[in-house]
Amino acid sequence: MSPGSSGRAGGDGTPADAERFRDVLAELRADGCNLLVVGDAPRRLFTAASAGLLGGPDETRYRLLAITDASSRSVVERLPDPEAVPGSLAETTEVVNHAAPPRSVAEEAGRPEAPPLSDISEPSVADPELAGLQADLAEAMAAFDCHAGGLDPGQLRVGVDSVGALVEHYDEDVVRRCLRVVTGYVSDYDAMGHYVLTEPYGSDRADRFADEFDAVVELRAVDAAGRDHGAEERWHVPSRDLTTDWLPL
């Protein structure tokens, strides 16, 4: 589920709660938002959630993904089929490679059925204070805004995977400052940004970063027996004192 979509929700599961959550999602999409994605969940669920938040092929969107430790396959799985999207995926997508050491997502994608990535821009950046990462993301957002002739609310989707890898290589205060810069740019363009942190909701690290974001999306795997899904998400929006029920991912 992603901002702007519909579904049952709410702290008590009532129709009023569901309507309130839909209103909050609409506001997040219209005003721009930054989401922290957490959970005690398999990595594949973070990939699935990221794919949903980057948006499907139903309308023209610009996608900007910064990777630090995401696998090349997971990057491919987040992107729509280039044959299904309006316009050119190469003109509307950029992958900023901040892996250490850098590795090419396009060269490592490897799956014959995967959409080709060779035409997608993939700058590699490594810097001691994350200034290079901030600059590359800011420049890409500005370029997309120029290409679009002005981005519509929610048209630009930004992802960072993962915050945990950044904290492993940089001081936490440096990472926090970087995120504040990036989330500020996301808000300036009324974009939707999501930031992966593979930590349980309520963990010390998740709690320390949660205040930097508009909402926290919590993931979990569930037994698919007797259900039509094997993964769920729950949204926490502290500014609205709102926590949803568990929803199918």
Results as ranks from 00 to 15, higher is better:
residue 237 V to K: 07
residue 235 W to P: 05
residue 87 G to A: 07
residue 171 D to N: 12
residue 54 L to R: 07
residue 233 E to I: 13
residue 232 E to K: 02
residue 11 G to Q: 14
residue 50 S to E: 11
residue 213 F to Y: 03
residue 107 E to D: 14
residue 58 D to K: 06
residue 43 R to L: 14
residue 197 L to N: 00
residue 197 L to H: 00
residue 209 F to I: 03
residue 111 R to G: 10
residue 7 G to E: 12
residue 199 E to F: 03
residue 205 R to Y: 04
residue 148 A to M: 06
residue 102 P to R: 08
residue 160 V to R: 03
residue 67 I to L: 09
residue 106 A to I: 04
residue 22 R to W: 13
residue 209 F to S: 03
residue 101 P to R: 06
residue 185 Y to W: 14
residue 118 S to C: 07
residue 242 L to R: 10
residue 182 V to L: 14
residue 63 R to C: 14
residue 247 L to C: 11
residue 223 D to L: 01
residue 230 G to K: 01
residue 6 S to K: 14
residue 140 A to Q: 07
residue 60 T to Q: 15
residue 168 E to V: 06
residue 193 G to A: 10
residue 1 M to A: 15
residue 211 D to I: 08
residue 4 G to H: 05
residue 184 G to C: 09
residue 18 A to E: 15
residue 187 S to T: 09
residue 44 R to E: 15
residue 236 H to I: 10
residue 155 Q to M: 11
residue 58 D to F: 03
residue 49 A to S: 12
residue 127 D to S: 13
residue 233 E to M: 15
residue 66 A to M: 12
residue 120 I to V: 15
residue 191 A to K: 02
residue 192 M to P: 00
residue 30 A to Q: 09
residue 83 E to I: 01
residue 162 S to D: 01
residue 68 T to C: 11
residue 162 S to A: 02
residue 135 A to S: 10
residue 196 V to A: 06
residue 83 E to T: 05
residue 105 V to M: 02
residue 82 P to N: 03
residue 108 E to K: 10
residue 162 S to V: 00
residue 147 H to R: 15
residue 100 A to N: 09
residue 191 A to M: 04
residue 226 G to Q: 00
residue 8 R to I: 13
residue 139 E to C: 05
residue 169 H to T: 10
residue 66 A to Y: 08
residue 196 V to N: 04
residue 15 P to F: 01
residue 215 A to C: 04
residue 112 P to N: 05
residue 101 P to T: 06
residue 25 L to P: 02
residue 212 E to K: 02
residue 155 Q to Y: 09
residue 12 D to S: 11
residue 244 T to I: 08
residue 127 D to V: 00
residue 196 V to H: 02
residue 67 I to W: 04
residue 18 A to M: 14
residue 18 A to N: 12
residue 61 R to D: 06
residue 133 L to Y: 10
residue 239 S to V: 13
residue 237 V to T: 07
residue 220 R to G: 11
residue 92 T to R: 15
residue 111 R to W: 13
residue 88 S to I: 04
residue 164 G to L: 00
residue 237 V to E: 08
residue 190 D to A: 10
residue 44 R to V: 11
residue 85 V to K: 01
residue 63 R to M: 14
residue 39 G to V: 09
residue 127 D to K: 03
residue 187 S to K: 12
residue 246 W to S: 03
residue 71 S to N: 00
residue 99 A to E: 12
residue 104 S to M: 01
residue 190 D to Y: 05
residue 126 A to E: 09
residue 159 G to A: 15
residue 134 Q to S: 13
residue 106 A to Y: 02
residue 215 A to G: 05
residue 163 V to S: 01
residue 124 S to F: 04
residue 165 A to V: 02
residue 48 A to Q: 12
residue 76 V to A: 15
residue 45 L to H: 12
residue 225 A to W: 02
residue 55 G to R: 02
residue 52 G to E: 13
residue 145 D to P: 04
residue 82 P to Y: 01
residue 230 G to L: 01
residue 149 G to Q: 12
residue 44 R to T: 11
residue 161 D to K: 01
residue 35 L to I: 15
residue 164 G to Q: 00
residue 182 V to A: 09
residue 206 A to C: 10
